[in-house]
Design a protein around this nucleic acid. Structure first.
Length: 497
RNA sequence: GGGCCGCUAGCUCAGUCGGCAGAGCACCGCCCUUUUAAGGCGGGUGUGCGGGGUUCGAAUCCCCGGCGGCUCACCA
């Protein structure tokens, strides 16, 4: 195999030279399995109380593996820090311990992955350190890492080369560990509450369950176009028809829309459905699940987010959409009258280009006048039916639906409703959506005959909710861009060389 | 998609009335057996994002393009 690595600068050439020298000494620069006894952090915590003399009288043998992230060499000795998944620990190479092998250290670089065997001791400054008795090169690194002091700051490089970001910026690793902890907590919580985790299709013949533009693809053998799902909702409800009473799915959704600090084309959504309950149950449920999550992650219900302190102490405010509007000074007549609403919106400088219906005008006014002020966790409830084609109408006011959105830090974190299970009403709502679509609303829902058929078999009264996991993780990790909580966010392609 | 800002060494960044391209860290050579942003001496390693233009001369000024950031729009 004769492959020439491209993009060679002097620094990489030097490392390739060292690699060849190592091969010349019979050392495989790309290593083999290596047995370790500890992680770096385990050593530091486990032996934190051992004094220098205790370690000297009763030597503790250990072995670790990890990446060299610092190197301070003297003529016949060198200090280094080795970083593994858990953290880092100092190691000490001495010529009088390693004899001939010490000269191999001259061929090591920051970034190389090594295995270390040795005994623990304490330095003059009392730092717990491994005295290296033997070491093994496990992987030669050919590219220099960013400098130790400033790390990798360039945002573009951090996203494009997340692997480097993870090596040099420990807080990035913490964020993603926290992300996993959050998802695992939610999964365990739902299972404990009797929910069954399921997987429904990512590829839909009819993209449904949300108002959004889909990604389109093509299945060659079937000869049909397919869409990446914009939501799992209609499939999860089919499972309610099938007899499952509590189901959830945590998985990706895909929406072919703009990219921003709050939007990535693929994002992670939790959706869960409960038979025989309504949206008031879900508000209580959500409040409880998220407060327990807060305790689990932070041990407190008050957490910082940017300039704010978010207080998750229940009960969270519940306010109807219309009351929220009124509270921000939107006159009652604006809510009642389409003409007044349009005038009001215009007077507030709200762009109504493609907005026609009364409900959508009110929604625009809501986004402008209310959303920015929804900092503390708030359930906004009872939306106009037109905005919610899959939600059940309120008994006492059929123009509204039993729906809530949970806002935290001005962001929509959850969307939930009592599910519409009347097939006739559902069909009528789909038809209305189809009309909107024909009038040019690309995001209107499509008719899904099979979903109607499922409802005709009978779906129990139920409530369902979606929680945007990425946005929730942003809140809980004090992150201001969704790209900081997605390991490999979508970017434009790099310029070809 | 619009507006504004940015792109200089591996990394973090200076530098412009238009006049030989710089620092710290990293790296290379030499010295150094308890350092930890180790230290001392010596060394600058570069497609200045790409392409055009103006000019005796462009990292710097102008135009076109690329990528990124912020923001607005979009995203109920």
């Amino acid at each position: 195999m004769e492959v020439v690595l491209e993009d060679i600068n002097e620094l990489i050439k030097q490392r390739i030279r060292k690699l060849q020298e190592l091969r010349g000494l019979g050392i495989d620069p790309y290593g083999h399995p290596y047995e370790t006894t500890h992680k770096a952090k385990e050593l530091l915590t486990q032996y934190t109380d051992k004094s220098a003399s205790e370690l000297e009288n009763d030597p503790i043998e250990c072995s670790i593996a990890g990446r060299i992230i610092a190197w301070r060499s003297f003529g016949k000795a060198a200090f280094s820090h080795i970083q593994d998944e858990s953290g880092k620990i100092q190691v000490y190479f001495r010529k009088d311990v390693l004899d001939d092998k010490f000269k191999i250290t001259k061929k090591l670089d920051i970034g190389d992955i090594v295995g270390i065997k040795g005994t623990l001791f304490r330095t003059k400054t009392n730092e717990l350190t491994i005295l290296v008795k033997d070491f093994t090169l496990l992987t030669k690194s050919l590219r220099p890492l960013p400098e130790k002091w400033h790390g990798l700051k360039d945002i573009e490089l951090r996203y494009r080369q997340r692997y480097v970001d993870l090596i040099v910026n420990p807080e990035v690793r913490e964020t993603f560990v926290k992300r996993t902890t959050i998802i695992k907590f939610i999964r365990d919580y739902l299972e404990k509450e009797g929910f069954l985790e399921v997987e429904t299709p990512m590829m839909h013949q009819i993209p449904g369950g949300a108002a959004a533009k889909p990604f389109k693809t093509h299945h060659n053998a079937l000869g049909i176009d397919l869409y990446l799902r914009i939501a799992p909702e209609l499939y999860l409800k089919r499972l309610l028809v099938g007899g499952f009473e509590r189901v959830f799915e945590i998985n990706k959704n895909f929406r072919n829309e703009g990219i921003s600090t709050k939007h990535n084309p693929e994002f992670t959504m939790l959706e869960f459905y409960v038979a025989y309950k309504d949206y008031t149950f879900l508000m209580d449920f959500t409040e409880k699940m998220l407060t327990e999550l807060l305790y689990h992650i932070h041990g407190t219900l008050q957490i910082p987010y940017g300039e704010h302190t978010l207080d998750f102490t229940p009960p969270w405010q519940r306010i109807t959409m219309y009351d929220a509007l009124k509270q921000k000074g939107v006159p009652e007549e604006v809510i009642k009258s389409h003409e007044r609403a349009r005038d009001y919106a215009r007077s507030e400088g709200i762009d109504l280009r493609d907005i026609h219906s009364h409900a959508k005008v009110l929604d625009e006014i809501f986004k402008e006048k209310v959303e920015p002020y929804l900092i503390q966790p708030t359930f906004v409830i009872d939306y106009p039916v037109e905005l919610s084609p899959l939600a059940k109408r309120k008994k006492d006011n059929p123009e509204l639906v039993e729906r809530f959105e949970l806002f935290i830090a001005s962001r929509e974190i959850a969307n939930a409703f009592t599910e519409l299970n009347d097939p006739e009403d559902q069909k009528a709502r789909f038809l209305k959506q189809v009309e909107d679509r024909e009038r040019g609303d690309e995001e209107a829902h499509r008719m899904d005959e099979d979903f109607i058929r499922a409802l005709e078999y009978g779906m129990p009264p139920a409530a369902g909710e979606g929680i945007g996991i990425d946005r929730l993780v942003m809140i809980l990790t004090n992150s201001h861009s969704i790209r900081d909580v997605i390991l490999f966010p979508q970017l434009k392609p790099e310029k070809p060389k």
